[in-house]
Design a protein around this nucleic acid. Structure first.
Lengths: 230, 230
DNA sequence: TCAAAAGTGTTTCGGGTACACCCATGT
DNA sequence: ACATGGGTGTACCCGAAACACTTTTGA
């Protein structure tokens, strides 16, 4: 048996599952493939890793090419590498997941090999190319998990936001309604929000106070070993 | 700018951080490199991915080559791919972490490029080759996290085990003592343990009852949406 | 009878959840 | 005055944590 048999040819793709809350619905950005294989099928945006490019840098580049925007959260998800997953040959897909703040989610012009880009409600996804259905499921599971146990949730919302907006983002991801009073108590009780003096009109009624996520306070608490469960 | 510039040469390694509890200490299996680069330095066991080999299959193969054993738990950790991390060229390392049950942890004969293999207490690690120090830190963090929030802990213990053995495994990983009564209440309260009729002598005193992890009960509860926090 | 480890209940505390009304604003 | 969304407090429940003694076994 040939030990350490060298692989004939290996490529690495970096794919990014991009989530955002749009009109109170958790949405994911997909691109329609303009070239084979799977031409005409929807896929998770991504592309091949370049020489001398770090993995996270590649993910940020793809994200920027697809959306023109910068993510408020970006994290590696997992690597998918089943031998038959890409008909062109052996391709490892290093997957990331990204959050965009609500509001910055105009339908972007497609870049690269994509014929079209569009946002889809996560509950109404088309069949995806390659093994991207699996990747998406994994990403969604991870997002929900992290939303409940970490502070990623603040990445779904603009820099300044009302508590109602934040709550709606949580509800959109988790798919269930939360109690307004309990939600506010919990989120304010974390001690990582700073109230601003500004307000925002939501509809034609009483204006709501705008809050900011305070990275300083967050770090201070984390250094003391405070956990952040939602 | 050349779009989708093809990489000159890319290889993928699969590395496995192998944990076990030995003599009440959380330990990691390391190999001493017998060839450059980093010859003579300790490293996380691993090797190059083969053609037509799945990622998890490669991890299991490496594990078996290094230890001759089968893991009770194996999960992908993350992929490390900074451009300069391997002086031989661009190498992505798809990392896994594995648990071995206590008892099956004889010091293994080294395989492959390794000159030597040995278990190290996680609190007394030598400097590691490549970026393996980072990989190890990440693995340890993940293990601790999963131990508290999932049922991975049962992978640290033989098929049949006493509650004291299980508690010692938890204490070894988390680095703090737990209350015996609370621990037993919690773990039995999960409803996933089955008492056997057998007993085990621990020292020269009263024998302890042996328990088994019941996969059936676990699945039954998980289907009902029961979470498993430790 | 002693040494060694197994085994067992109760109380207290804090966080989570359920629940309904008044307030500020513009029309 | 009314429509719209913003904002607030209390009671109950359950799981987590603290805490010490009795039992079984073999030497």
């Amino acid at each position: 048996m040939s030990y350490n048999r060298r692989m004939a040819s290996l490529r690495a793709a970096v794919d990014v599952v991009i989530f955002a809350v749009r009109e109170r619905r958790l949405s994911v950005l997909l691109v329609k493939r303009g070239v084979p294989p799977f031409r005409g099928r929807w896929a998770i945006p991504g592309g091949f890793l370049r020489e001398d490019e770090g993995l996270e840098a590649a993910a940020r580049r793809e994200l920027n090419e697809e959306t023109g925007l910068t993510a408020s959260f970006l994290e590696q998800l997992a690597t998918f590498g089943a031998p038959g997953r890409d008909p062109r040959g052996r391709v490892l897909s290093v997957c990331y997941f990204a959050l965009l703040p609500a509001g910055n989610t105009a339908v972007p012009a497609p870049g690269g090999d994509a014929a079209q880009a569009a946002w889809f409600d996560v509950r109404k996804l088309p069949d995806l190319a390659f093994d991207h259905g699996d990747i998406f499921e994994y990403a969604l599971q991870r997002l929900r998990w992290k939303l409940e146990w970490t502070t990623v949730g603040f990445g779904l919302v603009p820099k300044r936001f009302t508590l109602t907006e934040l709550q709606q983002a949580f509800e959109a991801v988790l798919g269930r309604a939360a109690d307004k009073r309990n939600f506010r108590r919990k989120v304010l009780g974390l001690g990582v929000l700073a109230a601003t003096r500004e307000q925002k009109r939501e509809g034609l009624a009483r204006p709501a106070r705008l809050y900011e996520f305070s990275a300083q306070r967050f770090e201070k608490l984390r250094e003391r070993g405070v956990l952040f469960p939602f």
